[in-house]
Structures are given as C-alpha cells and as structure tokens.
Design a protein around this nucleic acid. Structure first.
Lengths: 198, 198
DNA sequence: GTACTAACTGACTGGTCAGTCAGTGTAGCC
DNA sequence: GGCTACACTGACTGACCAGTCAGTTAGTAC
C-alpha cells in the first residue's frame, strides 16, 4: 500500500464532488465519508478547504496538459486545417472521458478564487494557455500551408475555444442533446476558417 | 410607496446575490440585510430559499423575453443575414447591461434544480427557446432571401448560441479581454453562414 | 372604537459546517 | 526497550444557516 493512498483518495473524491456540487455545495464531511476516512484526516493532508480545492485544480491542470501533449506527440496531420479540426474533436472527446475536469472549470467559484489566489490563477492560466495555443498553432500552420484564411490566428483560436466550451456547456445543461451537434460544430469551424481561394 | 416594495426589493437583491455567489453561497440573512429588512420577512413572501430562487428565475425569464421582443418590434433588417448579426450584437449588448441575468443562467445549480423542479425547467426552456428561435428565424429568413447558406437552421442556431454564450463566459472569467472579440465574433459568424454563391 | 386583515419582525431552534486538538497506532532506528 | 516521526482519528467547538412562531404594527371597514 503506497504511503499516499488516503491523500490521493481524498483528491479523487474531492474532484468529483467539487465538479458536481461546487465549492460551497460540498462539505468536508462528505468528501471524507466518500473516501472512507475520518473527517480530520483531510485536515492533516490539506490545510483548509480552499487548499484542497487548489490541489484538485492542480491535478486537473496536470491531467489536461498531459493528455493534450500525448495526443499531439502521436498524431500526424496533412494540413493546419486538419490539425485544427483534430484538436477540436480531441477536445470534445476529452470532455466526454473526463467530465469532472471540464465541469470543474465551469464553476464560477474558480474564477472568483483566481482573482484573489495567485496560485489558483496560475493553474487556470496554464490550462487556458494549453487549450488556446493548440488552436492558435494549428491556425498559424494553416495560414502558412494555405489551408486556412483568418484575420488573426489568436483571436480566432479564442473564438473556437469559446465555441467548443459553449457546446460542452449546452450538453451538460441537459436541455438540448448537444452531442448531436458535434459533427455540425466541426463542419461550422471548417466553414469559418477554410481558405476558399485555394 | 407601493404595497410590494419590500417583496420586489428582496427579489432584486436575491437576483444579484444568487448570480454572483450562487445558491449555496448566498444566505437568506445576507439577502435580508442587503434589502434592509428583517430576516423573517423573506419567509413571509417566499416559502423557502428554493422558492425565492425560482421567483428570481421567473423575473429573469420575463425580462429577457420582453427585451428581445421589444428589440425586434423596433428594428428592421435588409436580409436574414443582417437580422442574425443584429440579434447576436443585441444578445452581447444585453449581456453587458444585465450581467446578473446571464451570470445566473451560467450557475450549474439552476440546471440541477431544473432536473427536479418542473417549474424551474419550464422557465429555463422558455428562455432558451426565446434565444434559439430568434437565431433560427433569422437563418430561415436568410435561406429564403439567399443571404444565408447552412445545412440546418436549427442546428446552426444552437451552435451560434453556444458560441455567443462561450464568449460571454470567457469575458466573465476575467482571464482574457473577450470584449475585444465581439467584432471578430460577428465577422466569424458571417463567414460561417454567409452564402458565397450569391 | 372595534374588529379584521395583511405586512412585518425579534427571538428562537435544530442542524450543519470548517477547523482544532489531544491523543492512538506504527514503522524505522539506535 | 526506548525514542522519534509520521499518518491518522474521535470528540469537540463556535459560527452560521434555513426555517418557525408568537406577537406587533398599520390600514381599512363598519
């Protein structure tokens, strides 16, 4: 049994609970009982509830950055445009396999905390930089190989991120079956950035 | 002094607090002190905290539906495409003048409640129907007058809603200055739906 | 002035919460 | 065995919170 088994159990349970019930909606007692440990044990490993939350965010950051770098090490693309569409599809795929990560990032509390807590802000910036940079790199590559035509790679990358995020949110709201929009989303992005002069 | 002055003061303060701090993050005591009334007064007008929340949502629904119908009574558009871009711009404008409305709609609690409380679900559906239908009508009109070319007006309307929502969220996160993306957003939508054959 | 009603309130309650503390168990080292 | 350090825990505390209730105030009708 590894030394940190209880600590990592706390982190895993806290991730699920913070993502699904928010910061104020999750109690430390609940985390403890889900992880099958005594309530006070959490405060041995994490100073405060906020400290636990930041640690959860750190593990999410590590996970996202790792997944994306793994994906782009293995995949090859014919053009910048194909790389962009591949990145969008992978983003949507990841949102399906790791729902908690993206649910957590949609919690408003995290951005309130980031305004006050520089470590939290740092982790958030790392995550967003990772996500935006991939779209931006693909767009810049596409501008060079002629597959993409946009005014600003950076701004377009941000708009595409907002778009993907918005679709993910629509789906988690359970009002529309946004899953059926994935194909349409990729097609719309293609129409938006494709170079028609080619 | 109108008879309902205290009731409407409670509603107004609750809207701001629920939008900015969420359901669990807002206490009835806080609402009462912000509205400058005794704590028990809230429970005279609203049965429970959840009841107050649903009443807040109802007033937000009424506000959004009213604003949009007013706008489209007064404005005239040359084409379906122009109507779509006008609707997007108005949506962004409204998000600036009534931040609380859209902050509230981004709270996860509201969708959890909607899964359990049919009245809450109804109000949410009314709001989303209002927002999506305007985009869809504009796109359908554009398909008829030849200014727009899309596969499905409905699906595209949902994607544009997700896009606008995503940009609004990016801005409220305070990580990027998304306000500078408004122009780019409208231009991107134009590229996405415009009929180039015309 | 009396009777009735609606709006409102102070004082209270039972329950939950984050965080503390004084310990217990245990593994490694001499 | 004795010592130290770490992981862990049960029992506790003070603060806060949603909701209750008995009672006050003020307007209106007769």
């Amino acid at each position: 049994m590894p030394k940190t088994s209880k600590k990592s159990a706390i982190l895993a349970m806290a991730t699920v609970l913070f993502a699904n019930k928010g910061f104020t909606g999750t109690s430390m007692t609940e985390v403890a009982s889900m992880a099958d440990i005594a309530g006070a044990t959490i405060f041995y490993h994490f100073k405060t509830k906020e400290d636990l939350f930041v640690s959860v965010l750190e593990s999410v950051k590590t996970g996202i950055v790792q997944e994306f770098s793994l994906f782009f090490q293995e995949e090859q693309f014919d053009s910048g445009l194909e790389m962009l569409l591949g990145a969008i599809a992978f983003h949507l795929h990841l949102a399906g396999t790791n729902k908690e990560w993206f649910l957590l990032l949609r919690r408003h509390y995290i951005y309130e905390l980031a305004a006050v807590n520089p470590i939290c802000r740092r982790y958030l910036e790392d995550i967003y930089t990772c996500l935006v940079d991939i779209f931006e790199k693909a767009l810049t590559l596409g501008q060079q190989d002629g597959s993409v035509s946009v005014a600003s790679a950076r701004k377009t990358a941000l708009i595409i991120l907002a778009m993907v995020d918005g679709i993910m949110q629509l789906e988690s709201n359970n009002l529309y079956n946004a899953g059926s929009l994935y194909g349409e989303l990729v097609a719309s992005c293609r129409r938006m950035v494709e170079n028609k002069q080619q």
